[in-house]
Simulated assay, not measured.
Amino acid sequence: MLFRFIDGINEVVGRVICVIAIIFAGIIIYDVIMRYAFNAPTRWAFDVSKQMFGFYFVLLGGYALRYQAHVKVDLITGALRPTPRRWIEAAGYPIFFFPFAWVFFTRSWEFAQRSWAQGETTYGSVQLPVYPLKIAMCVAAGLLLLQGISEFLKLVLNREEYNRHDA
C-alpha cells in the first residue's frame, strides 16, 4: 500500500542520514585533536560540520514523523480513548500539518532554485557551496509531506502501524 512505500523511503533516508552523524562526530573530534594537541586548527572543519549538521537535521524530519518522535501537545488527546484521539489527530493533518508542509516545500524550492542559480557559497575562510543544503531542505520538505500523507492514511484507515505508540 502507499503508506508502506512512503514509510520505506523515509526509513532508508533516515538510516543513510544517520551515518552523517558518525562522519560529523569524526570531523569534530579531528578538529579538536588538531586544535588542542597539535595547535593546528583546521580552516574547513567548522564550515563542513555546520553544513553536515544541517543535512542531518533537516533530512530526518520525515523519519522522525514516521516514529512519532516530533513534539506533541497531548493536553486534550492524551485523555481520550483511541478512536476519538485518532480522529482528532487525523483532523490536525489537513488543518495544520499539510498547509505548513506545503508552504515549507514551495518556499524551500524557491530558496534552492535561487541559491543554485547564483552559485551561492559560504562566506567563511573556506567557501563551500550552499545550494546542496538548500536543495536538501526542499527534499526534506517533500519527505516530510509524504510521511504526513502516510500518517494521515494510517489514522483514517485505522492501520495498526500508526497505533504502535498507543501501547
Rank of each mutant, 00 (worst) to 15 (best):
F3V: 02
I6H: 04
D7G: 01
G8Q: 13
I9L: 10
E11Q: 05
V13G: 00
G14V: 01
G14F: 00
I17W: 07
I17K: 08
V19H: 09
I22F: 13
I23Q: 04
I27W: 01
I27S: 03
I27A: 06
I28V: 15
I28F: 06
I29A: 15
I33F: 02
I33L: 05
A37H: 10
A37L: 15
N39I: 08
T42F: 13
F46S: 00
D47G: 09
D47C: 02
V48T: 06
V48E: 03
S49Y: 03
S49I: 01
M52P: 05
G54W: 04
F55G: 09
L59W: 02
L60R: 14
G61P: 03
G61N: 07
G61D: 07
G62W: 06
G62L: 07
G62Y: 06
G62F: 05
A64S: 10
A64V: 13
L65R: 11
V73R: 02
D74I: 01
L75V: 12
L75Y: 13
I76A: 08
G78P: 06
L80E: 13
L80H: 12
R81Y: 08
P82I: 15
T83S: 08
R85I: 06
R86Y: 00
W87L: 11
I88Y: 14
Y93S: 01
I95M: 06
F96Y: 07
A101Q: 05
F105R: 09
F105V: 07
F111K: 08
A112E: 10
Q113T: 07
Q113D: 06
R114Y: 03
R114G: 00
Q118P: 00
Y123T: 12
S125H: 09
V126Y: 10
Q127M: 14
P129I: 09
P132K: 08
P132L: 12
K134P: 03
K134R: 15
A136Y: 01
M137T: 11
C138P: 02
C138V: 05
C138I: 02
V139R: 06
L145M: 10
L146N: 01
G148W: 03
S150L: 01
F152K: 05
F152A: 03
L155R: 10
L155D: 02
V156A: 06
V156I: 13
E160C: 02
E160D: 12
E161D: 15
E161T: 11
Y162E: 15
Y162N: 13
H165E: 12
H165L: 08
D166C: 05
D166K: 13
